[in-house]
């Protein structure tokens, strides 16, 4: 097994994730791009780390699940307030 192949795949997936996070306006699509990045990191961990790398990959998967849960709660609340989930329409200085 040549570890270069999964490493290059992971690098490309990470690049796609960065591209998606910077390009997408819709908060849900942004979360999907973040998932791509987390998967790239997991791929590196599993290729490199043997048993301990796999344990860390499991931890990262759990963190991703928690992140998606809280992220969706935030997105739904944003939609309730703004009736839109476009991230560049959020006014961070707004008083509530």
């Amino acid at each position: 097994m040549h570890p270069t192949i999964p490493y290059v795949i992971a690098a490309l997936l990470f690049g796609l994730g960065v591209f998606g996070v910077l390009r997408r306006r819709n908060a849900i699509l942004l979360l999907m791009a973040v998932e791509l990045m987390l998967n790239a990191v997991n791929l590196v961990l599993i290729t490199a780390g043997g048993t301990h790398g796999q344990t860390f990959a499991l931890f990262v998967i759990v963190l991703a699940a928690a992140e998606v849960g809280v992220g969706l709660a935030l997105i739904l609340q944003l939609y309730r307030v703004k009736t839109s989930v476009a991230v560049d329409e959020i006014d961070l200085a707004e008083k509530s």
Binding site: H2, A11, V18, L29
Partner: peptide
């Protein structure tokens, strides 16, 4: 759904290709 693609493409492509070249150079074909 999208903002202008160019800045994102430059940064994302740079990160992806840069990391790929770095890792490929570090591991060659071992």
């Amino acid at each position: 759904l999208n903002r202008p693609a160019w800045p994102a493409a430059i940064i994302g492509g740079g990160a992806g290709v840069g990391l790929a070249v770095l890792l490929a150079d570090a591991y060659r074909w071992v």
